[in-house]
Design a binder for these strands. Structure first.
Lengths: 199, 199, 199, 199
DNA sequence: GATGAATGAGGCTTCATTCAT
DNA sequence: GATGAATGAAGCCTCATTCAT
């Protein structure tokens, strides 16, 4: 990599970082390309040397974030082995990602993530993945048929997104462990668990 | 009511209706006051005879929608009587509201609902209500302490909002009963219910 | 005069009064026809039953004011009789008019008075009158030729307008007598009178 | 100064010049930012690259004009030395400024100069300066107490502003020397000088 | 004549994007 | 590649005026 290339890469990285920081706190619509360039310490026109337009930067940020989140969730041991352990590990991975990428979470799980024209909805992508996995589990009887895979996927993603976006806004709101434990319990037992049948 | 007042009320209603329809499909930011006026069949300036600005119209739509939704949820019989029945009735009320007010649902449960300046987040309001109820139930032992009331509330609202917004986009996606049943099952047993202990 | 005519006249008078009060404090451009109608306690459309447009109302106010001011200045005894007495009486009449018609003064002597389209400049009218009188006085040697009648007229009117508009804004700024005396002295002796030659 | 900076400065200067020309002939309210931009040969948005808004441009023009006028008036030799000479030199400076800056005069001495929000009245500033100087002269007996410093200042400024604005509209109305001489005579002897006492 | 809802032209301002340097 | 001035389309909102009741 030449010196020029290094400079270019640095500029690009700074624009990305500025985009993350500003989109997270102000949202897509309130931030201008000038804001981002200024925050990155470059000229307004430089923005367009690196990104086709504002949507492209936003898209790149969300794509990257989604890839990383997906990677973390996938690296969890197979859920089928031990249901409780699997669910808890996934919740842990999700919350860990949120802690490490607070800005990204707020961007990813804001509804503006799908306001951008010609863009796939990030949450929908996650839901689709979940639904596919679920369909298998229902098919082979591991999961009950009363819970429809599509609806389940929307519910799961909605729950995750909201909880994690809420927590990422201010992580001092709640100890990380409580968030993980609550998500786990809800998944394993429901939001309104019925008392366990006494013997 | 005089003729003039009737005319005025009609115009106002048409603007409201146009706002609902357009916001639901295009979102707050993509719709202009001119769009709304044109859709309502009135001149651009007429918009401002009825609403201070675009945010005021949006706010009025969401406030009204929230009030109606709250009313429906509250009219359900007390959950404490019969847990399963209560949960199912609430899900039924929620889904019924979505079926009757598809546009409102999509507005209410879009994140743009909190993008408007000086506005309370609709979902947060619902979450606060849920959290308050839940704290009581945990306090008197009806609900398990492992599920934190705050986190629970965010999870419940996130789940509801996403499922219902998704379904309202295209209600032919899924029979209404399946949505209700799945929401009910998830609340009572979790997304990943453990197999019932065999005897 | 029928009852209807009396009502109509009353409405007109109230619009005029409202116009005076509002134009005086806020200026022509900051006041809307709605403001005037509202202040007068009538509907917006009623304004146009009495005045062709906003300029017409403004014009009528200034015309009326100018006529009254002219009347008062003209009623002063002839200046030629006794120079000092005449000058002082005119100053007295001017300041008296200001005291009695503070709103009118502020409208009449604001530059907005000539901002209205197709309107004769009120101050210019006064200047023209003064210049004409002056030309005679110069011609017959009563007044010195070093003081050009045209320039004199602009100077006199400018001085009067500014002093009186300033005082009318807040008459507690200065005792009325001081205003009169100063105007008189300036006219008789100049702003920078040279010391009287000692014998 | 780089080429870009030169271009920018040129654009700014053209906007300022256009503002002066247009405000002088049409007034603040009748001129739009688009008018100014078009007159300057730039796009509408360019205006806002150089001035926050229309008022800022207007303010800048008047501030600059006031500074220059003040500079000219201040550069005159001290009035106390020789009363007649001092008064005449000030009148000469004032009229010279008007001849050199006809547009500025019409803007500066229009009442719109104080119509702009959050703006100090230019004429009032001049009056305040004059009043302060005058108070001293009265205090030390150089000027007669019958002429109140505050009223005097309003009168002087009103007279100057009107005469000079009138003359600047069309300088062929009157030879420059006549304007100067008349202003001088009025200040030294009054508008209605009493015949000199014969011995 | 009074009413007041409706009209719509027009002004101000923002900002994503381009392009000459 | 970086710069940043310029662009101009587009949006929000105001308000003088009209007109049906």
């Amino acid at each position: 990599m030449t010196a020029g290339e290094r400079t270019r890469a640095t500029t690009r990285a700074r624009l990305l970082a500025s985009g993350k920081a500003l989109f997270a706190t102000q949202g897509l619509h309130h931030i201008t390309t000038h804001d981002i360039a200024a925050h990155a310490g470059v000229a307004a026109g430089t923005f367009y040397n690196h990104f086709r337009d504002k949507a492209a930067l936003f898209r790149e940020i969300t794509d990257e974030a989604l890839a990383e989140l997906t990677r973390r969730l996938d690296s969890v041991v197979d859920v089928k082995e031990d249901l409780e352990k699997g669910v808890r590990l996934q919740a842990t991975a999700l919350v860990g990602f949120a802690a490490d990428n607070r800005d990204l979470i707020r961007i990813l799980f804001s509804r503006e993530a799908d306001a951008t024209a010609v863009q796939t909805d990030v949450l929908q992508l996650m839901a689709d993945r979940s639904a596919a996995v679920r369909r298998e589990l229902v098919a082979n009887g591991t999961m009950p048929a009363e819970i429809d895979p599509e609806v389940f996927a929307q519910a799961l993603i909605g729950m995750w997104a909201r909880v994690v976006a809420w927590w990422a806004e201010d992580t001092s709101r709640m100890p990380r462990e409580v968030v993980i434990e609550t998500l786990t319990q809800i998944q394993l037992r429901g939001t309104h668990p019925q008392p366990k049948p006494s013997i």
